[in-house]
């Protein structure tokens, strides 16, 4: 069974097929989550892409809060190049009241997010990615109808001072766009731990 979605009328149903768990390649099937604009955002309805930049972030983590401007810039730069950015909030809003949907909407509005900010209420999408903390970035690349994880790690290496930072995430997108071997397919990252509901 696959997720069947009629764009615009989609519901949040996600069924995953993860292959190559033991190898280097991990693929993720299409998913659909609720966006802060109230609509369902799904990979199925955004197929005219080469891949996605997926950033796990949240409302309450102070280190994640350093990045919105940089995420806006990344989205602005890479959307025309067919690698748009989406942000996913993996936090359990039963544990953290700060993470409830209405406060995600407030956050997106206050910080002028130019990208979808999706709530992973059941934490299933985040679990499939293996997201560990916020902020944490992934690049997934569309290959033969599946999304292959090409990069996992930090956005860059200086939260407070973008001018001093090495842009790991942007470098990885550039490498992929140029068909180059990725310099670093994974970089160490850190932030607020994601507690998965059992």
């Amino acid at each position: 069974m696959r997720t069947s979605v009629i764009c615009g009328l989609a519901s949040v149903v996600n069924l995953f097929f993860v292959s190559g768990m033991n190898g280097q390649i991990k693929t993720i099937e299409s998913f659909a989550l609720r966006n802060v604009n109230g609509q369902i955002w799904s990979t199925e309805c955004n197929k005219e892409v080469l891949g996605f930049i997926v950033v796990f972030t949240c409302n309450h983590c102070p280190f994640a809060s350093l990045y919105p401007a940089r995420l806006n810039a990344l989205n602005e730069k890479y959307t025309p190049l067919k690698v748009p950015l989406i942000a996913i909030n993996p936090m359990d809003s039963l544990l953290y009241e700060d993470e409830i949907f209405s406060l995600m909407q407030t956050k997106a509005q206050l910080e002028n997010f130019n990208f979808p900010y999706l709530q992973d209420e059941k934490q299933l999408v985040s679990k499939q990615f293996g997201a560990e903390h916020t902020p944490q970035a992934f690049i997934i690349w569309l290959e033969n109808g599946k999304y292959v994880i090409k990069y996992k790690g930090a956005i860059d290496d200086n939260g407070e001072d973008p001018a001093k930072a090495t842009p790991f995430l942007a470098n990885a997108v550039n490498d992929l766009l140029a068909n180059r071997q990725l310099d670093e397919a994974a970089t160490p990252s850190f932030g607020c731990r994601i507690f998965y509901r059992k």
Binding site: P62, F63, G159, E160
Partner: peptide, 15 residues
């Protein structure tokens, strides 16, 4: 009590 960060070494801040 809250999470925050501090510049303790050159480069990235420490949580």
């Amino acid at each position: 009590l809250k999470d925050t960060f501090k510049q303790l070494k050159s480069g990235n801040q420490t949580i």
